[in-house]
Amino acid sequence: MSRLTKRPRVDHAATADRLRAHPGEWLEVGEYRSSQAAVGVAYLVRTASVKSGVSPYEPAGSFQAVTRLTEYGARVMACYVGGEESHGPDQHAVRPMQDHERVLGQIERGEVVAGAEGARRIAARAMDAYGTAVWGSDPDTAWADACVSLTTGGAE
């Protein structure tokens, strides 16, 4: 059984300095054994996230990062796109999106349909897929029965 060769650890401070010295140019950050590790590092580069201390990639959004699969894992490439050179709070910092913001955005863009229209589409798909086995011969009656069942807790 062959042993994986040990790779040198990435000096992120030096990498961030090198990227800042070459703005707009894509340079290698490092190569990782798993694509998941590379995706995580790319996220940390873009968001300037660290568990403690100060990220060398601050302020958040100053760097772009992508991953590319390689023969032995995945490579992270990054590009300095600019940003304020302060390490203080950044008004443009990437923040996690709340679930309600994400869902409302999906509804506005038409990616998710809610309300009566969404219910009609779901019923139509079920009717197409299963015929009358699910909704019975009269879908309107089945829909009314379902609404009554929801409001009465299943007891009629």
Score class of each variant (00 low, 15 high):
90 D>N: 15
100 H>V: 10
69 L>W: 05
91 Q>E: 14
102 R>Y: 08
92 H>N: 14
100 H>M: 03
106 Q>Y: 11
81 V>H: 02
104 L>H: 08
93 A>C: 08
107 I>A: 03
66 V>E: 11
80 Y>V: 08
76 V>P: 06
98 Q>E: 15
94 V>Y: 15
99 D>Q: 09
72 Y>M: 03
68 R>A: 14
105 G>H: 07
102 R>E: 03
101 E>H: 12
82 G>K: 05
103 V>I: 15
91 Q>W: 09
97 M>E: 10
78 A>R: 05
84 E>W: 01
108 E>Q: 12
93 A>F: 04
76 V>T: 02
77 M>V: 08
78 A>T: 06
69 L>A: 15
87 H>P: 00
92 H>F: 14
90 D>P: 00
88 G>E: 14
68 R>N: 04
98 Q>A: 15
85 E>W: 00
79 C>I: 03
91 Q>A: 10
83 G>M: 07
87 H>G: 11
66 V>F: 03
68 R>K: 14
96 P>G: 10
104 L>G: 02
87 H>D: 06
108 E>F: 06
66 V>K: 11
79 C>F: 04
85 E>D: 13
89 P>C: 02
80 Y>I: 10
80 Y>L: 10
81 V>G: 04
107 I>G: 00
93 A>V: 10
88 G>C: 05
96 P>S: 11
94 V>M: 04
82 G>D: 05
89 P>Q: 13
90 D>S: 15
